[in-house]
């Protein structure tokens, strides 16, 4: 079986400082991988390198494209990479306003990706957008409202709808539940879990919240100082951590 994403030796330096160093892993279709670590551990740098937002200094990010099979997205042309970003890839930002157009209606936000890939029938676009807003539990009466009038949880759900409407195969998520109320987080996690299963999505989730990865991720990578110190099944890493740092991380979580 071909991995959907094969990351090899990704390294990113900021001058003398290491962003992330020599990160490699394979992600298979339908897998959800969590990346945890404290602030500054390099997890967001790694995510941005993989998603094409940052150019790594070394390494490959090989994606199994629909048309041409495995391609290194680092060396692929920018138009091709951006096309991937509109079709097979999705990116969910921590702050919804980074991933939304705040001056555009909810359905316009969702419809943009459809229009970006050439859909030109207003009625169809609107129907699809409304359907997706329903799937993320945003009431049909709000489709023409701007995201500025939405709560944080709704904005995040809108961002997810906007990302998933073109049926991507790989979703990058940067702290998707960060900054939300605990009750809102639970609802979002439940929603994400359902979508991941129903759409057979693969996902890479960067977070510092171990509860999030326990519920969403099949596999887990623990990062410290830019390097992966431990990787494995999520429950195995959390319940039987091997590395000193992973043990510290797991034992530092308050139990409720």
């Amino acid at each position: 079986m071909t991995p959907l994403l094969s990351v090899q030796g990704i390294t990113k330096r900021y001058g003398a400082h290491i962003g992330c160093a020599d990160v490699s892993f394979d992600l298979y279709p339908g897998e959800v991988m969590g990346i945890v670590g404290e602030s500054g551990s390099g997890k967001s740098t790694l995510l941005n390198c993989m998603a094409g937002h940052l150019a790594p200094d070394a390494g490959q990010v090989v994606f199994d494209t629909r048309t041409d099979g495995p391609r290194d997205t680092i060396t692929m042309s920018e138009p091709e990479r951006r096309m991937l970003g509109r079709t097979d890839w999705a990116f969910v930002h921590q702050h919804a306003r980074d991933g939304l157009r705040m001056g555009v209606s909810a359905s316009g936000n969702v419809g943009e990706r459809l229009m970006a890939v050439g859909e030109r029938h207003y009625g169809d676009i609107r129907d699809k957008a409304t359907d997706w807003l329903g799937r993320v539990e945003i009431d049909a009466s709000r489709v023409d409202d701007r995201p500025t009038t939405f709560s944080g949880g709704m904005q995040q759900r809108l961002q997810i709808a906007r990302n998933l409407v073109t049926g991507p195969r790989l979703v990058f998520m940067d702290e998707p539940t960060g900054g939300l109320d605990v009750s809102v987080q639970a609802r979002l996690l439940d929603l994400l879990r359902g979508l991941v299963r129903d759409m057979e999505l693969s996902a890479i989730i960067v977070t510092h919240d171990l509860a999030v990865v326990r519920l969403l991720a099949d596999r887990l990578m623990v990062m410290k100082s830019g390097r992966v110190v431990e990787a494995g099944l999520t429950d195995q890493v959390l319940d039987d951590p091997q590395h000193a740092y992973s043990q510290l991380l797991v034992s530092s979580v308050l139990q409720v």
């Binding site: 099944l233 429950d235 195995q236 319940d239 039987d240």
Partner: peptide, 9 residues
């Protein structure tokens, strides 16, 4: 039991 399940290494 957890080892058999792969929960423990």
């Amino acid at each position: 039991m957890r080892m058999i399940y792969g929960n423990y290494l």
